[in-house]
Amino acid sequence: MKAVVQRRYGSAVLGDLDVPVPGKGEVLLEVRAAGVDMGVWHILTGRPYLLRILGFGFRAPKSVVPGRDVAGVVTEVGPGVTGFEVGDEVFGTCEGSFAEHAVAPVSRLARKPRNTSFTEAAAVPISGATALQGLRGVQPGQRVLVLGAGGGVGSYGVQIAKALGAHVTGVCSTRKVDLVRSLGADEVVDYTVADFTGTYDLILDCGGARPFSLLRKATTDRGRIVLVGAETGGAITGGFHKLMASPLLNLFSSKKFVPLMSAECADVFDELRALVEAEKVKAPVDKVFPLSEALDAIDHVYSRRSVGKTVVAI
């Protein structure tokens, strides 16, 4: 099978590999599309170096094939699998989705939404699940601020917050204003012109560029600031230093910083499927690359040129 092959950090090529064999609790997928997010770039480069310590591979990546978001068709069922059979169309996450075939645990798969293409479905799992879990507890009528609203997680954050009945303000750059408005934001702030004002019950921070002091000032009493991640840190810890510092800050205020560590599981993907089928959430696909141009797709995301989500079609 054709696959993007990465045997060391910082280098990958399109090559040939044997088709993998599903083990217990796994299925083999014919991959139709794979989503691209900043996590793929981190694994490709091995930066920040903290990721290597956290188990992604110290000297070389554990997974020879990058990519985790996936949508495809079940072609083989491993031992002990129930609920899926050959021919089922699914989406979710796995290790090594930048390939013509991939093995995925059924605990991280759900049936593909009926009203989406494989390309759209592959853009949903990681970003959609992160936004959904970051917005847990939002009540109708509350005010939600989404920083980085034109990116992967942020674009789902706007839609899910609206589906929950919140008043949503999205903050993004000029070229993403139209997208964020089309996703249903009540207010759109172009931060290149003027930054946001007011106070919010929940801030979903997908950008990581604002200081803690500003975020706290913009939060109501007992409000929450959900820290999704940041691309503003150095090569050692990246944006993780903010996530690690938040518990200490919570000792001194009723306004809570919540470092988000989202789970990738079938139950969450089923929730997303229901939202997509109810037309409350759509996959904001920006650009689609063929497998042979997967590295260009990663660069497209890393350079912040993506407006919404980027996908590799297999």
Results as ranks from 00 to 15, higher is better:
122 A>H: 01
180 V>C: 07
179 L>C: 07
107 S>W: 00
103 V>F: 03
55 G>T: 05
108 R>A: 08
143 R>E: 12
216 R>I: 03
194 A>S: 15
130 T>G: 05
83 G>L: 06
154 G>R: 04
168 V>Q: 03
42 H>S: 14
190 D>Y: 09
178 D>M: 03
173 S>A: 15
254 S>G: 15
83 G>T: 05
203 I>L: 10
157 G>Y: 04
63 S>T: 11
311 V>I: 15
308 G>W: 05
31 V>F: 08
235 A>G: 06
79 P>H: 03
35 G>A: 05
87 G>N: 06
174 T>H: 15
257 F>Q: 06
49 Y>Q: 12
192 T>F: 13
240 F>I: 10
180 V>P: 02
242 K>V: 03
68 R>D: 07
68 R>L: 07
24 K>G: 07
69 D>T: 01
88 D>M: 07
72 G>I: 01
253 S>T: 15
110 A>P: 01
309 K>N: 13
222 R>H: 14
177 V>Y: 06
128 G>E: 03
30 E>G: 07
66 P>N: 12
188 V>E: 11
187 E>N: 11
127 S>P: 05
9 Y>P: 06
3 A>K: 08
237 T>M: 14
64 V>R: 13
149 A>C: 04
192 T>A: 11
100 E>C: 09
179 L>A: 08
93 T>A: 06
192 T>Q: 15
160 I>E: 09
96 G>R: 00
192 T>D: 15
80 G>T: 04
171 V>L: 11
271 E>T: 14
196 F>G: 05
63 S>Y: 11
256 K>G: 04
62 K>D: 08
163 A>T: 04
119 T>F: 01
172 C>P: 01
114 R>V: 12
26 E>C: 06
45 T>W: 06
264 E>P: 00
219 T>S: 14
274 A>C: 12
89 E>I: 07
143 R>I: 03
276 V>P: 02
43 I>R: 09
143 R>K: 15
61 P>N: 11
313 A>S: 15
15 G>N: 09
112 K>C: 02
110 A>Q: 05
244 M>P: 00
91 F>S: 01
243 L>Y: 02
105 P>I: 02
264 E>H: 08
120 E>S: 06
295 L>E: 12
185 A>M: 11
102 A>D: 05
123 A>C: 07
202 L>A: 08
136 R>V: 10
279 E>Y: 10
43 I>L: 15
241 H>P: 01
302 Y>C: 03
174 T>C: 10
126 I>D: 06
148 G>D: 09
85 E>Q: 14
294 A>H: 11
242 K>C: 04
85 E>H: 10
59 R>L: 13
19 V>C: 06
272 L>K: 03
234 G>F: 13
19 V>Q: 13
314 I>Q: 11
162 K>Y: 12
304 R>G: 05
131 A>I: 02
291 L>N: 09
50 L>S: 11
77 V>E: 10
263 A>M: 13
219 T>I: 12
54 L>I: 09
6 Q>R: 11
7 R>C: 09
49 Y>F: 15
162 K>L: 11
172 C>L: 06
133 Q>T: 00
38 M>L: 15
46 G>A: 08
286 D>P: 02
162 K>F: 11
121 A>N: 00
257 F>W: 08
296 D>L: 13
165 G>Y: 03
201 D>E: 14
278 A>C: 07
108 R>V: 00
102 A>V: 02
261 M>I: 13
311 V>K: 10
31 V>M: 12
227 L>W: 01
